[in-house]
Design a protein around this nucleic acid. Structure first.
Length: 251
DNA sequence: AACTAAGGCAACCGCAGTTCG
DNA sequence: TCGAACTGCGGTTGCCTTAGT
């Protein structure tokens, strides 16, 4: 009845991925894409859960991933978006090309939190730490609200938050890229943009396999693979497949 | 040089929304 | 229409590395 179970949990391997597993997964996805993650481990010859494969691919093996720490500009965008969106890391990540939600989440927890605390800002509320009492008082536990209202309240930037955001931005902003997040009166535009899930470019990028040209642009990633000792991947097979930005040009 | 603590990151877990038989 | 599986997301954990003693 219904669908087949996700995976045989007794047989799946857990823990860190080996270079060999990475190689298999990359080779399989490059050649076949990932029509459905559940089928990937079986078809790729991996003793992993599909979920694990997806995570490994999206967080580590994807060719367009950036490496290294977030830049100051990226960090500031993360702070601004977090003030508006809260811990919705995937939404935040979608605005930072080459960064994953997991990466941003980790960076937030290990670096940005500390920075904000150092600046006297609560990383959760984005308010000044000595102004915490007013923030808790703003909640109205006795009121009855709909789910939509709860959602709106949860994610709507508070006035005080906007002040903090603006302060931080003015203090640290030296990069033109940061302008998008400095303008508080543009918050609504930013939110509107974030809520716009219809992103054809991204969809095309992921639905389409990748050309050699694109791979050459991802030199850092390829170097990483050489470190893995899997530089002998059959990247030539990728030739047969179109690439998103080429298609986009045509459109 | 050896040990310990802290930091950083990859990966897992579990939940919620969506999809499908 | 219902219920089970799939997918994606955020929270958490655990291991590895680095810094300090």
């Amino acid at each position: 009845m219904g669908r087949q179970p996700c995976c045989d949990k007794l047989k799946v391997k857990k823990g860190p991925w080996t270079a060999e597993e990475d190689k298999k997964l990359v080779a399989f996805i490059l050649n076949n894409g990932h029509c459905c993650w559940r089928a990937v481990p079986k078809l790729a010859g991996l003793l992993r859960c599909g979920k694990s494969c997806r995570l490994r691919w999206t967080n580590y093996l994807r060719p367009d991933l950036k490496r290294g720490l977030l830049t100051d500009a990226e960090e500031k965008i993360v702070i601004d978006l977090h003030a508006s969106l809260g811990n919705r890391w995937s939404k935040i990540a979608s605005k930072l090309p080459g960064r994953t939600d997991n990466e941003i989440k980790n960076h937030w927890n290990t670096h940005i939190k500390k920075k904000l605390l150092k600046m006297g800002i609560d990383p959760v509320t984005h308010k000044l730490l000595n102004d915490q009492t007013s923030s808790t008082a703003m909640a109205s536990p006795n009121s009855t609200v709909t789910d939509d209202e709860k959602f709106s309240k949860k994610h709507e930037p508070l006035d005080a938050e906007k002040v903090i955001i603006n302060t931080v931005s003015q203090e640290e902003s030296t990069n033109p890229q940061q302008n998008c997040s400095n303008a508080i009166d543009r918050d609504e535009q930013v939110i509107g943009c974030l809520w716009d899930d219809d992103m054809p470019f991204i969809d095309k990028l992921w639905s389409s396999p990748i050309s050699n040209e694109a791979w050459e642009r991802s030199s850092e990633w390829l170097l990483d693979y050489q470190e893995f000792g899997i530089g002998d991947l059959e990247l030539g097979r990728v030739e047969s497949i179109g690439f998103a930005d080429e298609q986009i040009k045509l459109n």
